[in-house]
Every structure is written in C-alpha cells, then in structure tokens.
Amino acid sequence: MNIKDLPEESLFTPGHTACAGCPAPAIVRNMMKIFGKDTIVYTPANCLLVFSGTYPYLAWRVPYLHEAFENTAACISGVARAYRKKGKKTLVVGIAGDGGTYDIGIQALSGAAERNEDVIYVCYDNEAYMNTGIQRSGATPYGAATTTTPAGRKIAGKLEHKKDMAEIMRAHEVPYVATLSISHPKDFLEKVEKAKETEGFRYLHVLSPCPTGWRFDPAKSIEIARKAVDSGMWTLYEAEYGEITNIYKPKKKIPVEEYIKGQGRFRHFTPEMIAELQKWVDRKWKRLYGELPES
C-alpha cells in the first residue's frame, strides 16, 4: 500500500475548520480512505469533534456519533456489539485525542481492550488538550510549555515525562497495536490497512504535531513529525498480542535538540533540560531496540 493506491474519493470533506496546517484532517481523511464507506465513526470531545462539524454541517460522509469525552472505547464497544447482534459486519472506529486517551479515557479504553472488543481505537496525539486551549496532558513531553505548565520564572514547563501509552496498550496483549506518523506515508497506510484486516481490538496511535499548541510554522507540521521519528521522540512499531513484530529504526538518529528547534513550546529550554529530554529518549530507545543508540 502506497499513496498512489489510495482512492480519490474522500469520506471526510474539505470545508472543515481545523487550524491551518493541522495534520489531523489529513490523518483521518487518509485513514478513512482505507477504512472505506462501511465504517461507523465515533469521536469524543476533541478538536476533531469541533472542526469536523458544527451543526447542521458535517465533514463526515459516514455514520457519525458523539456522546461524551471519557468513554470512546465504551461507545465503540456498544456500536460493535449492536452490529454483532445483527450479524452484520461493519468497521467501528473511535478517534480520540491524547487527553481522551491517556487521561480521562484510559479506564474505558483499558476495559474495551481487555474485553477484546472488535473495534479500532485511534489516538491522534497532539501532546496536550488543544481543544480547550493547550493545557498539559499525560502525553505532553517533558519541559514543554502549555497554558497549565507555562515557562514561568520558578517552574519552566512540564516537570514530568510523557506517558508511554502505546506500551500500556501493548501490555493488554490485544491483537494489534501500532504507532504511526503521517510523515511516513507508506508505513502509515500499511498499518491502517493491517488494522482494518485484523479482528478484535486494534489500537492505532498517531502523532499529530499541532502548529497552534506547539507554536511552529504551520507549513512544518509534517517536517516536525518526521523529526520526531528521526530523533526517537516518537517510535514507529507494530505489536501483535503484546509481541513487537516490526520496529522502524531511523537511518540516522538526530539529537532531540534538533527536534525541539522551531517549536515555541521548547523555546525556554536550557542545556540541562535538553539533556534530560535526551536521557528520556535514550532510555526509551534502549528499551525498544535493546541497545543504546550510536552517537
């Protein structure tokens, strides 16, 4: 599967009101091209809910449901069971943000994964509560400035590291877990396709750099996603039933210093903070690849 294999027809229309340069609409549009018409979509409260439609207008061309914030996995469970009872095959997809996944939604998510519900759960991760105006979440990386972890005189940015949500999901030993980046289209599309073909609980986690919240030039969204992968801030891999089956290793690992450049949320970084973030990356790298990166 590659870009040129994707159908022209879109199930997510233009006219949506995402910020200029937000990659989330491209993420969902391209995913939907693979999921196809026979899909039911749920979104909790997040930017996607708001920019994909303000009543009576809607960008979705598939059945679409919203209930609340913290319950994406429970809602898609309900839809999937209703369809199983009918004996009809339909793809049921929930698309939540990082706040709705890492924080308020983790209970329902863990429950649905443990029950191995036949659904696809997508976390599009922009590393803070962007819909409410850039507050820190469990996905916010160390040191990043948000409106609740401002770069203040005493405390500069978030004090804690990012939670490893994909690893938490891998520990549920569900049929499929994958991390994706829009900057790597072939890898992205193959994982979406694999998710579609797999049965049972599938978890897709995609990084979605936010020009407004991360404070960078909107033209750079894809470039920053690419740097996230190349620096090890974001790791692309697949896991089946808890076992890592495929992991992407950047050809040349770049230092985090290069990744954080051009992002306003890291502008206040001191050399010590850069070193702390690099240490986190190296720890994660060693855990996932079994060895320290070559320097």
């Binding site: 229309t13 233009p14 006219g15 439609g53 009576p56 207008y57 809607l58 960008a59 979705w60 598939v62």
Partner: peptide
C-alpha cells in the same frame, strides 16, 4: 448533515 461541510468555503 452528512458531508455538508463541503459548502463551507475556507
């Protein structure tokens, strides 16, 4: 309704 955001010219 469904698919109508196409009418919103951004």
């Amino acid at each position: 309704g469904i698919g109508s955001f196409i009418e919103n010219k951004t």
